[in-house]
């Protein structure tokens, strides 16, 4: 059974079909990139999967369960971690507290009014931080961190509930090329180790073609291609939507 199954998904905004009959699946441990030009419907698709938007048509199954009408927090409880396009952490907390927060929530102890939160799951949180290379910054206020480091913290938070599936919206947006590679490599290592499936959207074709196991391409709300890096690179339709006719990724890539 696939970890995530998207079935004939559709969503319209004021008559414009932003996503139209999109279907795909992710197998266990698969690293799947969702790409497409601006306005292709990537974010809409993504936000339906993570529960921020309700689809008009079709269904989404995570671990065999329909999540099309679920709220983000309930989807998270099914074992789905996520990171945001614009990284979001809790600015008034330290780095380690950010991760502890997710661990406490995972343990269902959010409503506890008595135990000091600072001591709860601190060890486990430090472990997670170590895995993303941020153990040294554990007690710094998270708002002081550089943007690339915030992305790493998000990753640690996303791993806190032992997810089966990781949803990453533009994980490398706003980062320098060097940082990008480091981060994606880190993600890839971590998920391979744990057998986590990943769905991510990405602008950097470099990253996509070097790391994705499989790539799906959206254009004008429709799925136009699905295959590995080589297949997508050579797909005429994909080349057309990205560059018009006559150009290829090799020429366009830096």
């Amino acid at each position: 059974m696939s970890v995530l199954s998207v079935q004939s998904l559709g969503k319209a905004f004021g008559g414009v079909r932003a996503v139209d009959n999109v279907s795909f699946e992710i197998g266990k441990g698969e690293f799947l990139a969702l790409i497409g030009p601006n306005g292709a419907g990537k974010s809409t698709t993504f936000n339906m999967i993570n529960g921020q938007l309700a689809p008009d048509a079709g269904d989404i199954l995570i671990g065999g369960k329909s999540t099309a009408r679920m709220k983000p927090r309930d989807i998270w409880r099914l074992g789905v971690g996520r990171t945001f396009q614009v990284a979001a952490t809790f600015g008034s907390m330290t780095v380690v507290e950010n991760v502890q927060m997710a661990l406490i929530s995972h343990a269902g102890r959010i409503l506890n009014l008595w135990r000091p939160a600072g001591s709860l799951y601190r060890g486990r949180a430090l472990e997670l931080l170590a895995q993303v290379g941020m153990a040294d910054a554990a007690d710094r206020p998270s708002r002081e961190l550089a943007y690339g480091d915030v992305k790493r913290i998000e990753l640690a938070i996303a791993l806190a509930n032992d997810p089966q599936l990781l949803l990453m919206d533009e994980p490398t947006a706003g980062m320098a090329p060097r940082e990008r590679n480091d981060l994606i490599k880190l993600v890839k290592d971590l998920v391979v180790e744990r057998g986590i499936s990943v769905l991510f959207t990405e602008h950097s074709m470099d990253v996509v073609f070097s790391y994705a196991d499989r790539i799906i391409v959206l254009a004008r709300g429709r799925l136009i291609a699905d295959g590995d890096a080589a297949a997508i690179r050579d797909n005429a339709k994909v080349q057309e939507v990205y560059f018009g006719t006559g150009k290829t990724f090799q020429e366009a890539s830096p």
Binding site: R77, A88, T89, F90, I110, N161
Partner: peptide, 15 residues
């Protein structure tokens, strides 16, 4: 405080 700092993030970790 998590809900205040970032409601989006808080919801995304099950709060």
């Amino acid at each position: 405080r998590a809900g205040r700092d970032s409601a989006l993030r808080a919801e995304a970790i099950g709060i």
